[in-house]
């Protein structure tokens, strides 16, 4: 196994990290925490299935494309629950419908469902980076009233993870076609970002422990 494949494997397996974090902190989880853990459980099953399909030379893109809607819906729901401004909440709510419609449109009219839809990932990245910046802006404005240290706020770590993953991979998604032709190994960058992101998601659970 070469370096690139090893990195991809570790990246794929790193989805276990938030699940371990969630199990360790299970007693401290509130209802939202348990929902997040459930989503990460689903993500893990999906990731492993995608990986299994790839290893058996079966096209995993249909599953991946459908999963994009679920993924966006999950993160958007988290921001929807944690952002106080009514107008922004409304915007996030409508963005879920918009994104779902766009994904369906993209797999029918832009690319095939059997292809990687980089356009969908670009739109998803734009929306989620914006949502996380919105959350940080709200956090900085309400810090004066916040008694909990920011490092103890689970949503802070999830937002950091979302921002890091989608901002870090934005241009990778944007130039996906070109990069695939120039240097496919640049995708190892995605693996590194993914491992760090999953570690941040794990901290979002562990920060609840004393």
């Amino acid at each position: 196994m070469n370096y690139y494949k090893l990195l991809v494997t570790i990246s794929m397996a790193s989805i276990i990290l938030p699940n371990i974090g969630g199990i360790l902190a299970y007693r401290k989880l509130d209802i939202e925490g348990k929902k997040i853990l459930l989503f990460f459980g689903v993500f893990m099953i999906v990731d492993f299935t995608i990986s299994w399909l790839a290893n058996h030379n079966i096209n995993n893109m249909p599953m991946f494309n459908i999963f994009s809607i679920l993924e966006y819906g999950f993160y958007a729901y988290l921001f929807y629950s944690n952002i106080n401004n009514r107008n922004w909440r409304k915007g996030i709510y409508y963005s879920i419908w918009f994104f779902s419609a766009f994904t369906i449109f993209a797999v029918i009219f832009i690319r095939s469902i059997y292809e990687f839809n980089s356009e969908v990932r670009v739109v998803e990245s734009l929306f989620l980076v914006f949502c996380s910046l919105l959350y940080f802006s709200q956090l900085s404005n309400t810090l004066i009233f916040e008694r909990t240290k920011i490092f103890k706020i689970p949503m802070f770590w999830i937002s950091i993870g979302v921002l890091f993953y989608f901002a870090g991979n934005f241009f990778l998604f944007l130039f996906f076609r070109e990069i695939s032709q120039i240097s496919p190994t640049i995708w190892s960058l995605h693996s590194v970002v993914n491992i760090i992101t999953n570690s941040l998601f794990m901290i979002s659970f562990l920060c609840r422990l004393k």
Binding site: L139, I150, F151, I160, L163, G168, I186
Partner: peptide, 21 residues
């Protein structure tokens, strides 16, 4: 650009963490 964007994301995250802290 791809590498720079990843580094930029890392710096942005670091900046936000330090700023909020």
């Amino acid at each position: 650009v791809v590498l720079a964007s990843a580094i930029f994301a890392l710096l942005l995250v670091a900046f936000i963490v330090i700023f909020l802290n």
